[in-house]
Design a protein around this nucleic acid. Sequence first.
DNA 1: TTAACATATGAACAACTGTTCAAATGAAGA
DNA 2: TCTTCATTTGAACAGTTGTTCATATGTTAA
Lengths: 114, 114
Amino acid sequence: MDICAEKCINEKKVRQTVKTIPQQEDIGQMVDIFKALGDPSRLKIVLALLNQEHCVCDIAVICGQTDSAISHQLRILRTMKIVKNRREGKIIYYSIDDDHVISLIHMSLDHVRH
Amino acid sequence: MDICAEKCINEKKVRQTVKTIPQQEDIGQMVDIFKALGDPSRLKIVLALLNQEHCVCDIAVICGQTDSAISHQLRILRTMKIVKNRREGKIIYYSIDDDHVISLIHMSLDHVRH
DNA sequence: TTAACATATGAACAACTGTTCAAATGAAGA
DNA sequence: TCTTCATTTGAACAGTTGTTCATATGTTAA
């Protein structure tokens, strides 16, 4: 591995830090979580479900958006295993399925409020 | 406020949850942080600076990207007060400027690894 | 002052993302 | 069965975002 053949200024520091960087795959997964929460619609959905489970059309009312828009976002959150759902007749209830995400949100709330 | 004139299914639950949702402004700030970390280039920069301060061109080497691309991203991170910089002659050193962000990253690393 | 270098900036472009609209499922009750 | 209702899905469109390239700052040393 020839890091920094001629470009970098402090080769020793670069080598030190490179060793500490997580694997590409881990970085990708971290990015995915942050990206999932980095959209107002999705964050608001997750914040709503933080309180209790809700069906799609109630989430739509809470978030002030279309059922369809909410459903699209829920699919993304479901794919990422951030939320799960259960059916009760015609109605499908969504809830949070990831404790780490709950912690992340509480921590970011602290950040915003201090 | 007429939440849910006819659309929603469980009006009581909707009202309960609406009360718990943070203000729009707080949500916006939370989204901004998550969005900032929700990009591979920026997250990698922050991960690098987590270890120690670095100059722009060393970050570029660490991240395998152009000086210019790194500089653009650093501007975003600087604007958000996630990183700060200090000048030493021609060289500008960047470092993390936000402890909450450090916590968020550690928590997401835990998430990925368990 | 000039040359060399580290960093920053602006415009342009491609790629990605979220919402909308229309239509399709699939479950419950008539 | 047919109808109604909650939810899902797909295509299309607009808006956003990250990178690239060329150029501009601003600092140091000659």
